[in-house]
Simulated scan of single mutants.
Amino acid sequence: MKVELEADKCVASGQCVVAAMDVFDQDDDGIAILLAEEVGDDQLDDVKEAIAVCPAAAIRLSRQ
Score class of each variant (00 low, 15 high):
residue 1 M to T: 15
residue 1 M to C: 08
residue 2 K to W: 04
residue 2 K to M: 14
residue 2 K to C: 13
residue 6 E to W: 11
residue 6 E to Y: 04
residue 8 D to E: 10
residue 8 D to A: 04
residue 8 D to V: 02
residue 9 K to H: 12
residue 10 C to Q: 09
residue 10 C to A: 08
residue 11 V to R: 11
residue 13 S to G: 13
residue 13 S to N: 15
residue 15 Q to V: 14
residue 16 C to H: 01
residue 16 C to V: 04
residue 18 V to W: 13
residue 19 A to W: 10
residue 19 A to R: 02
residue 19 A to I: 13
residue 21 M to D: 13
residue 22 D to C: 12
residue 24 F to H: 02
residue 27 D to F: 08
residue 28 D to K: 09
residue 28 D to H: 03
residue 28 D to I: 06
residue 29 D to T: 09
residue 29 D to A: 12
residue 31 I to C: 03
residue 34 L to S: 09
residue 34 L to M: 02
residue 34 L to H: 08
residue 36 A to Y: 13
residue 36 A to G: 15
residue 36 A to Q: 13
residue 36 A to I: 11
residue 37 E to V: 09
residue 37 E to L: 07
residue 38 E to T: 06
residue 38 E to D: 08
residue 40 G to T: 13
residue 40 G to P: 06
residue 44 L to E: 15
residue 44 L to R: 14
residue 44 L to A: 15
residue 46 D to V: 04
residue 46 D to A: 14
residue 49 E to F: 10
residue 50 A to V: 09
residue 51 I to P: 12
residue 51 I to K: 02
residue 51 I to Y: 08
residue 52 A to V: 04
residue 52 A to F: 01
residue 52 A to W: 01
residue 53 V to Q: 04
residue 53 V to H: 09
residue 54 C to I: 12
residue 54 C to N: 03
residue 55 P to Q: 08
residue 55 P to Y: 08
residue 55 P to E: 13
residue 56 A to V: 10
residue 56 A to P: 10
residue 58 A to R: 02
residue 59 I to H: 11
residue 59 I to E: 05
residue 60 R to G: 02
residue 62 S to L: 07
residue 62 S to T: 14
residue 63 R to W: 14
residue 64 Q to C: 07
